[in-house]
Design a protein around this nucleic acid. Structure first.
Length: 288
DNA sequence: AATGTAAGCAACCGCATGTAT
DNA sequence: AATACATGCGGTTGCTTACAT
């Protein structure tokens, strides 16, 4: 038995929104708000749309102060830095760019930014990489993985058959580590600077903003953050791997410089990053 | 001018998470 | 504590437009 549908699919319109539908939705929300219930909203307005569709349309297109297109170089840099540090957490990235939506940023990255970076050096080297939710969840589950003599076991002590390239990497000797210079999260300056991450909290990490005039902080699980910060999982999944300067920063770069910081994917270093990253965090926690 | 291909973008789908009961 | 439901998110799809042949 599958999941119950969120709406009556048979009686719901799909596809592009008409100006009339846009006007109805915009007018209603401006007058009454969403009422905290997107599912009920289309019925109240008289729209034959799924509540989720209404929400998406409002958030991505109709809500006030939305900016479309014409990303600035500063925005490019922020997106790149955040992507490198936290991966494809588009909602978090969007929260740092007022007026931008996660969908817009995602599209911009996938269609342009990635190519601008990738196209310079690595078209020939790019290998097809398994992508999507499945691989992400499986890599994500590595938080429960036990590393023992470079072989991966799950919670039930079964050696994981998944990702043979990762298993191979884990069985190879570790590369000479420049990791001593790795720093906790740091992002470029203005317009909203992320001053760091409170790693002392076990249950939850807050992105703290400098200067007071900041967007609402976004939280995420510390385990997940540890993983993405120190292993760049998302970059790995894309077959990209970025390098950092000694401060862990990628700001103040032009595109030529930026592209020089990208190296071909190295599964071996990736896998070891994960382990070394963990030990780095342990050191930081002991210091506190 | 016609056709094929690539790029860009809006929207959908399904899963994860949060919240109410 | 368990369950149901709503929301949020990220990946993916498919349509439209631009460009190349």
């Amino acid at each position: 038995m599958g999941r119950a549908p969120c709406c009556d699919k048979a009686n719901v319109k799909k596809g592009p929104w008409s100006p009339d539908e846009d006007a109805k939705l915009k007018f209603y929300i401006e007058q009454h708000g969403t009422g905290g219930n997107w599912i009920a909203l289309p019925q109240k307005i008289g729209l034959k749309r799924c509540g989720k569709s209404c929400r998406l349309r409002w958030l991505n297109y109709l809500r006030p102060n939305i900016k479309h297109g014409d990303f600035t170089e500063e925005e490019d840099r922020i997106i790149c830095s955040l992507y490198v540090n936290i991966g494809s957490r588009w909602s978090i990235i969007a929260a740092q760019l007022p007026g931008r939506t996660d969908n817009d940023i995602k599209n911009y990255w996938n269609t342009r930014l990635k190519k601008r970076l990738y196209g310079k050096h690595h078209e020939k080297q790019q290998q097809p990489v398994r992508r999507g939710r499945k691989i992400k969840s499986e890599i994500g589950n590595s938080m429960d993985i036990v590393f023992d003599n470079h072989v991966i076991y799950d919670n039930d002590n079964n050696q994981l058959p998944f990702l043979p390239e990762l298993t191979t990497a884990l069985n190879s000797p570790p590369p000479p580590p420049p990791y001593a210079n790795y720093q906790p999260l740091q992002f470029p300056s203005t317009p909203q600077q992320l001053s760091g991450v409170d790693l002392s909290r076990r249950d939850d990490v807050q992105f703290e903003m400098d200067g007071g005039s900041c967007l609402p902080a976004t939280s995420c699980q510390v385990g997940e953050l540890e993983k993405v910060v120190y292993s760049n999982t998302a970059s790995f999944e894309d077959g990209l791997q970025f390098s950092y300067d000694n401060n862990g920063l990628m700001n103040d770069l032009d595109w030529g410089e930026m592209s020089c910081l990208i190296s071909a994917p190295s599964y071996s270093s990736m896998a070891h990053d994960s382990m070394i990253g963990s030990s780095y965090l342990e050191q930081q926690k002991q210091k506190q």
